[in-house]
Write a protein that binds this DNA or RNA. Structure first.
Length: 299
DNA sequence: CTCGATCCCTGGACGC
DNA sequence: TGCGTCCAGGGATCGA
């Protein structure tokens, strides 16, 4: 499940492998997750991929102004544009030799000028792809929160304390912080010893600062480890990440806490499975925890 | 403002 | 072996 570290890993891989390549042609499969499929076919061919940026969980392939033989005055391709890519839950994007057989669920193929194809594969199609010129792109990016890697103490506290929502919901809210998902929310809360169901308004400044610091440390470490591969995450070179070996909370229900040996528990917070240590991360009053699995389940 | 519910989608796990 | 059911989850949306 690509979050900030996984998307950053993919973006770095694309920078290494496809920067400067020109798009020759576009082939589409299923398009229900693409904003305007026809725009891809019309406006991508002829453009060069000049940069790969990341904005939260979004990747932005920065495209040159069209410079081919076609008239540029009639279709607006004289201006730079971007291909916005969100990997959703199961999206993968990587270059392959054009002759290589298509993997199942390949929905976008961009033929490049060196004979390779940049392919987007996404079984669940929770991802999103959009061709955007500068103004619509700017519009898209309004409303995103702070970059969790860059956010400073005061801004982080301002965005968290004073909010009545649960801290887990705040961490997952892309309008508060851009790029944090379920895994790194749980991991940072475990390290900061904060229960996911605590309200933002009930955190003091010191707790907020601890959380900011642990979140940054975890994201940076995870980037170094090329992200977490839980089920199917692969980077732009087809390699899995390694950070899942360092998970301390996520996916560890029933396993002992690395600090105090108490079994990790799971609860639904902000609509998502949330893993935490019931001893290290004291729950707010009256918060219900799911029973540990293993016993016979009632109908 | 914040909540939960619902939908999107497929593959994998599990029970029978 | 095969079928049905549940679950995973980012994000949009809607009603309470």
């Amino acid at each position: 499940m690509p979050e900030l570290p996984e998307v950053e890993t993919v973006a770095r891989g694309l920078r290494r492998t496809i920067l400067g390549r020109r798009i020759v042609s576009v082939t589409l499969g299923k398009t229900d997750f693409i904003d305007d499929p026809v725009a891809l076919e019309q406006h991508l061919p002829g453009r060069r991929i000049e940069a790969v940026d990341r904005h939260g969980k979004f990747m932005l392939l920065r495209l040159s102004a069209f410079s081919g033989a076609r008239s540029v005055t009639t279709n607006g391709d004289a201006a730079p544009a971007s291909l916005l890519v969100h990997l959703g839950m199961t999206g993968q994007i990587s270059p392959s030799p054009a002759a290589q057989p298509l993997e199942k669920h390949t929905h976008v193929c961009l033929l490049l000028d060196d004979g390779r194809e940049l392919r987007y594969v996404d079984p669940r199609r929770f991802g999103r792809i959009a061709y955007l010129t500068e103004a619509p792109l700017a519009e898209e990016l309004i409303g995103f929160g702070a970059d969790p890697l860059e956010v400073i103490k005061e801004e982080f506290a301002n965005r968290i304390c004073g909010r009545r929502a649960r801290i887990k919901a705040l961490l997952l809210d892309q309008g508060v912080l851009r790029g944090v998902g379920n895994i790194y929310a749980d991991e940072s809360l475990w390290r900061a010893k904060i229960h996911p169901a605590q309200l933002g308004v009930n955190l003091n400044k010191k707790q907020a600062e601890t959380l900011r610091r642990t979140l940054q440390e975890i994201l940076q470490k995870a980037i170094v480890m090329r992200g977490s591969s839980i089920s199917d995450f692969l980077d732009a070179e087809g390699q899995p990440g390694e950070y899942q070996r360092h998970h301390r909370a996520y996916g560890r229900e029933g396993k002992n806490c690395y600090r105090c040996k108490t079994p990790i528990r799971r609860a639904i917070v902000a609509g998502r499975s949330s893993y935490f240590c019931p001893k290290c991360q004291p729950s707010p009053r009256g918060f219900a925890v799911l029973p540990l699995p293993g016993k016979a389940r009632k109908r």
